[in-house]
Amino acid sequence: MFPKLTPITRNIIILNVIFYLVSNFVAFPKFYELFSVYYIGSPFFRIWQVITHMFMHAPLGQGIGLTHILFNMLTLMSFGPVLEQVLGEKKYIILYFLSGIGAYLLNCAWNFFEITQGASLEEIYSIPMMGASGAIFGVVAAFSTMFPDAKLFFMFIPFPIKAKYLLPGIIVISLYLGFSGSMGGIAHFAHIGGAIVGFILAKMWKNNQYRID
């Protein structure tokens, strides 16, 4: 069961669906070239991509295809409404977009490290990053931080898992996949970047450094 959709979460999902439909059925591949985000040193990088890449997902029939946007939106539907109600719309928007930006920055840092280790500049510059995963990992991390004892149920796991174990699990798995190169084509360090930002913001707000509305 999913919680009732709240306004900001609903609008983010609608925007993602609109971007996906236009990207695949109206302006393919131009939308992907313009609105996915490239490494900051790439000649294809444009400043607006830092935001727009959060609304882009894998093209139909390529890579993980449709499952990319489906999984992201289902995850957002599961965690987003609760946080939106607790934090208020303004802080929720800040959480979402700063997590997505943090995801991009950490992915750039990883790309820079790869370049120093001899990775192909042409490859780093030409492969874009896309998806709401970084922003959504921030939402999940914030939920885990604010509601550590909430019991979560996952497919194929026959028992509930407390939310406080979700964040370290995300970090460990993403670090392993990122350093090992497993599941190529996925920006694992972007997931970590989003989760870190989500954790920091939630920790600040939870500790009442900033009052939650």
Results as ranks from 00 to 15, higher is better:
1 M>E: 09
1 M>D: 14
2 F>L: 14
4 K>W: 09
6 T>W: 10
6 T>F: 08
7 P>C: 09
7 P>R: 13
7 P>T: 12
8 I>P: 03
15 L>H: 02
17 V>I: 15
18 I>A: 07
21 L>K: 05
21 L>D: 02
22 V>A: 14
23 S>W: 01
27 A>E: 10
29 P>Q: 09
34 L>H: 11
35 F>G: 01
36 S>W: 07
38 Y>C: 04
39 Y>I: 05
44 F>Y: 15
46 R>F: 13
50 V>R: 03
56 M>I: 06
57 H>W: 11
59 P>L: 10
60 L>R: 06
64 I>S: 11
65 G>A: 10
65 G>T: 06
67 T>P: 02
68 H>T: 05
68 H>F: 11
69 I>C: 04
72 N>R: 04
72 N>A: 07
74 L>T: 12
75 T>E: 02
77 M>Q: 06
77 M>V: 04
78 S>P: 01
78 S>G: 03
84 E>T: 08
86 V>R: 10
89 E>P: 05
90 K>R: 12
91 K>W: 06
91 K>M: 10
98 L>D: 00
101 I>C: 03
101 I>K: 02
102 G>H: 04
103 A>C: 14
104 Y>A: 08
104 Y>P: 02
105 L>H: 02
109 A>N: 07
109 A>T: 09
110 W>F: 12
112 F>K: 02
114 E>N: 07
115 I>N: 11
115 I>D: 05
117 Q>I: 14
119 A>Q: 13
119 A>E: 12
122 E>P: 04
122 E>A: 13
125 Y>M: 13
125 Y>H: 15
128 P>R: 10
133 S>Y: 04
133 S>Q: 04
136 I>P: 12
136 I>W: 09
138 G>R: 13
138 G>K: 14
139 V>Y: 03
140 V>A: 02
140 V>D: 00
140 V>F: 07
145 T>E: 12
148 P>F: 05
151 K>W: 07
151 K>D: 15
155 M>Q: 12
158 P>W: 05
158 P>C: 08
159 F>R: 01
160 P>K: 13
161 I>G: 00
163 A>S: 15
165 Y>M: 10
168 P>T: 06
168 P>G: 03
171 I>L: 15
171 I>T: 04
172 V>K: 09
174 S>Q: 09
175 L>Y: 14
177 L>C: 10
181 G>W: 08
184 G>R: 10
185 G>E: 01
186 I>R: 07
186 I>G: 03
186 I>L: 11
191 H>E: 07
193 G>E: 01
193 G>T: 11
194 G>N: 01
196 I>Q: 05
198 G>H: 00
198 G>P: 00
201 L>P: 06
203 K>Q: 08
203 K>Y: 09
204 M>D: 09
204 M>Y: 06
208 N>W: 02
211 R>P: 00
211 R>V: 06
213 D>K: 05
